[in-house]
Design a protein around this nucleic acid. Structure first.
Length: 582
DNA sequence: AGCTGGATTGGG
DNA sequence: AGAACCCAATCCAGCT
């Protein structure tokens, strides 16, 4: 079953809008496709999860709710998953800024929906209460408020000349919100013993009292000896800098790349010390004790947490897991991990947006950078890579900037797209992703800087500052369209993966993974996401089917965004026991 | 004591 | 190896 036969398009499921009443009661209204109310419910707190589960079995409506973590975390804890939702907070943020929506006034008259999610900024020690049990979100929770906002969003959508794309974006963003809650509920399978063994191998044995481990100490001593300062504190940047100067190492900073350019007996142990110290403080035994419980790492993901639409995270540094620790990500017995990432996601997305057939050809079925070399624009893969990154990030100097004209000559459409985005940004305009997420307007300070440079009395310094900030903004908008559209592709990919995994069904109790949370312990599930990579945790017997689901989902995401335009998104995919892929 | 900003290093 | 874009987390210094 590599590709499930397309079912007849089911009639659009009805909407069910939810709101909270007193004492945890839930008020619900179902709406038909025209937005007319068809039914009303009032549920006591204790009945809610079972009622949702029953509705899911009976047609699976699209749940319309204020804020996904607040509604969905308790459901997941009760073992109840939902197929789809509309997250009013996230959709409000997209629609009220989107250049694809001609009239945003009505959305802008509801600023209460601009509030940040509850998970955005909790106090550290209330983290678990807030995100597991819901709690105050900052956006309205009542049914009337939800109905009114939902109506505004439907009106905005219907007024858009790009309704289809925006609809896809809202669905993908909302599916992402569901997935973020599910990732936390399921957790990333984590082998604490393997983690401990990695730390011990690199840092030396863990000191019983919690002090610094042997190898870290030894390396630190070597640095102090080489600098002739036995009491030096290596963790203080100013003190370390002064000590280096006293020893004749005239660096301006203590950063790795600058140190590496100098010759001194202290340099080598110092670079080693920094590496060890980083591992120890950021992902050492303290991290393990704080973030890994019962065999799972459960970070908090924040969908839409970045202006471009990428996810943010907080707590545990989920988006910065060092490669050294990947061997600690390990499937449960009888289960496997599927680790899949997209090769060169951003340039491929750019080719799709620009409809650049030459670039699509260079990318098809292989390493895109090799394809660029074959076309003769540059001599080596390394050059192709820096040139492409420079095109998307806005490099103007160095080898990357030098190579840009060659890219312009072979990929004129793709390069015009990013160059236009940069020009729009420099002029103070806004740019928009493929599906309709628009960049923020320039800040008042930015406009002020620009207009001051236009004054008759402007000083050369004013003009320089204005040019600088204009270029900075141009680089931001240049990157925004590509990074933001790549985020949309990834969200769509994950939503399609999730849908296909649900169709694979459950395994027997005998091979369940009980630590994966009440809603997932018998099903293949997503366990990790990082911009262009997913990790799935799947029962061995379903591993091949799940891998097919991941590949099919990539093809489906490409079609949903770019239709029949022939840009492909090849995956690097492994089925393995650990996420370490060497 | 608690907050903010700079420096640094990890991720894409 | 650098520089360009989007980040988070840590530590220390310097401030209120």
């Amino acid at each position: 079953m590599t590709s499930s036969p397309r079912a007849e398009p089911a009639p659009a499921p009805p909407w069910v809008v939810l709101g909270r009443g007193d004492a945890g009661a839930v008020h619900a209204v179902s709406l038909d496709a025209d937005g007319n109310e068809t039914r009303r419910w009032e549920l006591a707190a204790g009945e809610f999860a079972d009622w949702v589960a029953a509705r899911e079995r009976d047609g699976a409506p699209r749940w319309v709710w204020s804020d996904t973590p607040a509604w969905y975390a308790p459901l997941l804890e009760a073992g109840v998953r939902v197929a789809r939702c509309q997250d009013l907070r996230l959709c409000h943020a997209i629609l009220s800024d989107s250049a694809f929506v001609p009239f945003t006034e009505s959305l802008r008259t509801a600023p209460e929906w601009d509030a940040a999610s509850a998970e955005g900024t909790p106090a550290a020690d209330t983290l678990f209460e807030v995100s597991d049990a819901g709690g105050s979100t900052g956006v309205p929770e009542g049914l009337d408020a939800a109905l009114a906002e939902f109506a505004r969003q439907r009106t905005a959508l219907a007024s858009s000349p790009q309704e289809k794309r925006l609809r896809l974006l809202l669905a993908a963003e909302s599916a992402g919100a569901l997935i973020a809650s599910e990732l936390r509920s399921a957790g990333l399978p984590w082998d604490a013993e393997a983690h401990d063994a990695i730390l011990t191998g690199i840092l030396g044995a863990r000191p019983p009292g919690g002090g610094s481990p042997a190898e870290l100490d030894r390396t630190g001593e070597a640095v102090r000896a080489a600098l002739g300062d036995p009491a030096l504190s290596l963790d203080s940047q100013p003190k370390l800098l002064r000590a280096l100067h006293r020893s004749g190492v005239l660096v301006e900073s203590t950063s790795r790349w600058e140190l590496a350019q100098h010759e001194h007996p202290a340099i080598e142990p110092l670079l080693a010390y920094k590496k060890l110290s980083r591992l120890h403080s950021a992902n050492g035994w303290g991290w393990l004790a704080t973030w890994v419980h019962d065999g799972r790492f459960r970070p908090v993901y924040v969908p839409g947490g970045v202006v471009t639409g990428r996810w943010a995270s907080f707590g545990g540094g989920a988006l910065q897991l060092p490669r050294q620790l990947r061997a600690a990500v390990a499937a449960d017995p009888g289960w496997a991990l599927i680790v899949a990432d997209v090769a060169q996601l951003e340039p491929r997305v750019l080719a799709g947006m620009a409809g650049d057939m030459a670039m699509a050809d260079a990318a098809r079925g292989r390493d895109l950078y090799a394809g660029i070399v074959e076309r003769g624009a540059v001599a080596t893969r390394a050059e192709a890579k820096v040139a492409m990154l420079g095109a998307m990030y806005g490099a103007t100097t160095g080898s990357s900037g030098r190579l840009m004209p060659r890219l312009r000559s072979i990929f004129p459409r793709a390069m015009s797209l990013v160059d236009d985005a940069a020009r729009t940004g420099e002029e103070g305009g806004i740019v928009t992703t493929w599906l309709g997420r628009s960049s923020p307007s320039p800040s008042p300070g930015w406009r002020e800087t620009q207009s001051r440079a236009g004054d008759a009395a402007a000083l050369p310094a004013d003009e320089r500052r204005a040019r600088q900030s204009a270029r900075d903004r141009g680089r931001f908008t240049r990157n925004f369209v590509v990074q933001g559209t790549a985020a949309e592709w990834s969200l769509t990919w994950m939503a399609e993966i999730r849908r296909r995994l649900d169709a694979l069904g459950e395994v027997d109790e005998a091979v369940a993974a009980p630590r994966s949370g009440a809603a997932f312990f018998r099903r293949p599930h997503l366990a990790f996401f990082l911009h262009d990579e997913v990790i799935l945790h799947v029962p061995l017997q379903l591993a091949d089917a799940a891998a097919d689901a991941v590949r099919d989902a990539a093809a489906s995401a490409s079609r949903l965004l770019f239709g029949e335009f022939p840009i492909d998104f090849p995956l690097d995919l492994h089925i393995a026991e650990t996420a370490d892929k060497g």
